[in-house]
Design a protein around this nucleic acid. Structure first.
Length: 580
RNA sequence: GCCAACGUAGCUCAGGGGUAGAGCAACGCUCUCGUAAAGCGUAGGUCGUGGGUUCGAAUUCCACCGUUGGCUCCA
């Protein structure tokens, strides 16, 4: 059923793209058209236009599209020879390029909807009348390179969304609005969590007190769990001499991603784009026995990468960020257990933050000699990754040849409350650095051997993870993460003393609590606390003071009056404990 | 880095060649209040930065910086 519906929507979307192309050609007869596929929730079409278009043009295009739809023009499929196709599209250079790139034996098909013919393998709805003029909407215009190639011309891409009826369209637009409301950049401002400052450095995150409280709650939990799971914590510097980056190979392969060097005492220092070389310095500080292994060393390591200006995005893509990094150094026969354990731990951590849907991506050895390390190592490592995924019963996809040159990896993507996928965890083998830094351990047979090195981040970067959390919870963090867990609200100044007493007791119990002693009216105080999405509001007045009780209002609006303070405390602690 | 749009008060936004506007927030005063915004008042801006055009630029033009939507990139 669902699949059938998706297929139908795909036809609608792709057909709408054709209608848009016809409309654009009507308005801009000299336009060159490129490609126009259906995508998730909609479609796009790429055009090479005589001038850049804006929102007003979208309206014009929409009107013309609606007229075309009303004409109920039939989509007619035709098979043509290569010569015919080239003749047909002789004024459309992008189409000509596509035709020339089709394999020898390809069956070339076109779709004609009366007046407009497009090179297309189909399929389409029977006629434009099957589309509803009120159930599509052109959303945005963006630049896109022809065939995604930076060196080719930049085309104008028009994005649209299309549905089978106006109600579905309305629901989708509402969904988009909801996503906008949850945007971490907007909520970060409203809830005073963090800020970015162009004058102080783009892509550098400033954590405000409330954001810092959440971060500390995340980090405390993270450290506790890492110690429980056999990790040691280490700290390493933020900058290092060029020797490190020459040895690691970063200066050869990754220099444009690094901040420029600082020259001091005739040496060049660089801000670290990765923590690995530093962890290796600690490893290489002494000779290791097989008995020492595995070493599991974790660090919330802040790294700096000079990301291109156009890719920065709130907390999701920044230039300075903290990886929840760890490196595992182990013997070949420990590898399989270590990988399985790391994956289990990773899923446990993500589940603790309320994520329930996961998908794994296994990336294997790149072809064409673009990799280091011998074949047998790659095979063994890839197999251990695959086994771990299967053991956890995870759904997974294999990205054949998608691994980095230095080793295979697993990436874990989660789905958030809005159904969007985010890549968080990564577990990667590294066959490059142990070689370059000449890492060894002494095995049972007394011979020096190279350890396996596994690089892993569970949350990814703390900044990005925070951004994902903000959007996942829409700013309404679970109690254990909420920057302010309890807001104490006296109904009038006369009860400030009781409010202070309750606040002090909560604070002494380690609760993140705030009292609103402003001269706002109680209603306004509730509204403010509600807008801050504080999980518990304690309203205190004459009755509560007399009974030593509190009236509890949840951010859901649910309230229970006259709760004995001790009862509230245990209810609160239970909520914190259960991470709900 | 590329294409496009945008940048006005702490925030959200209006204005658009001739003395810079609103709401919220802030501050002061009055009100002492029972579950989503009390009232009055005060203060707050080189209109992103630099340059050009003009008698005069926040407004027009150019360059730069940044943000946003995408593209490319993310060994």
């Amino acid at each position: 059923m669902a699949e059938e519906k998706n297929e139908k929507l795909e036809l609608i979307r792709h057909s709408t793209a054709h209608v848009m192309a016809e409309a654009v050609l009507k308005l801009f007869p000299e336009a060159k058209i490129a490609i126009g596929p259906s995508i998730e929730n909609g479609f796009y079409y790429d055009f090479d236009l005589p001038r850049s278009i804006g929102p007003d043009d979208l309206e014009e295009i929409t009107k013309v599209m609606q007229e075309i739809i009303k004409e109920k023009k039939e989509f007619v499929r035709a098979e043509v020879s290569r010569a015919e196709a080239l003749e047909l599209f002789k004024d459309q250079p992008y189409k000509v390029e596509l035709i020339n790139d089709l394999p020898e034996d390809a069956v070339i098909t076109t779709y004609n909807q009366g007046g407009f013919t497009d090179l297309c393998r189909g399929l389409h709805v029977e006629n434009t009348g099957k589309l509803n003029p009120q159930s599509f909407k052109l959303l945005s215009i963006a630049g896109a390179y022809w065939r995604g190639d930076e060196s080719r011309p930049m085309l104008q891409r028009v994005y649209g969304t299309a549905w089978s009826n106006p109600k579905e369209l309305r629901m989708h637009l509402q969904h988009l609005e909801e996503m906008e409301k949850r945007d971490h950049r907007k909520l970060g401002k409203e809830l005073e969590l963090f800020s970015l400052h162009e004058e102080a450095g783009p892509g550098m995150v400033y954590w405000h007190p409330k954001g810092a409280r959440i971060r500390l709650a995340i980090e405390d939990f993270w450290r506790r769990e890492h110690y429980k799971n056999g990790y040691e914590m280490i700290y390493t510097p933020h900058i290092g001499k060029s020797w490190l980056w020459e040895t690691s190979g970063h200066l050869d392969f990754y220099k444009e991603g690094m901040f420029n060097s600082m020259e001091m005492d005739a040496s060049d220092y660089y801000a670290k784009p990765m923590n690995c070389p530093f962890h290796i310095m600690i490893y290489n500080n002494k000779k290791h026995s097989y008995r020492d292994l595995p070493c599991r060393w974790a660090e919330l390591g802040t790294v700096y990468r000079y990301e291109k200006s156009g890719v920065l995005h709130g907390l999701m893509r920044v230039r300075g960020f903290t990886q929840d990094d760890a490196h595992i150094f182990c013997t070949p026969d420990q590898m399989e257990d270590e990988i399985a354990e790391t994956l289990r731990f990773s899923l446990y951590m993500l589940k603790s933050f309320g994520f329930t849907e996961f998908k794994a991506y296994l990336s294997t050895k790149p072809g064409g000699g673009k990799s280091v390390g011998d074949e047998s190592k790659w095979e063994a490592a890839t197999e251990s990754l695959r086994k771990a995924i299967v053991k956890e019963g995870l759904e997974y996809e294999v990205d054949e040849g998608g691994g980095a040159f230095y080793g295979p990896k697993i990436d874990i993507k989660i789905k958030d409350a809005m159904g969007r996928a985010w890549q968080l965890s990564t577990i990667q083998f590294d066959f490059n650095l142990p070689e370059r830094f000449k890492m060894t351990f002494v095995d049972q047979d007394g011979k020096e051997k190279q350890p396996y090195m596994i690089h892993r981040a569970l949350l990814g970067s703390i900044e990005r993870f925070f951004g994902v959390l903000i959007e996942h919870f829409g700013g309404a963090f679970p109690v254990w993460l909420a920057p302010v867990q309890v807001e104490v609200i006296p109904v009038a100044e006369a009860f400030d003393a009781y409010a202070k007493k309750i606040t002090a007791e909560l604070k002494a119990a380690g609760i993140r609590v705030e009292a609103d002693l402003s001269d706002d009216r109680m209603n306004a105080k509730i509204r403010n606390a509600q807008n801050q999405k504080i999980p518990y509001m304690l309203v205190l007045g004459e009755k509560e003071e007399a009974e030593g009780a509190v009236s509890v209002r949840l951010r859901s609006g649910k309230q229970t009056n006259g709760v004995p303070f001790a009862d509230f405390m245990s209810q609160l602690n239970e909520a914190i404990e259960s991470k709900s």
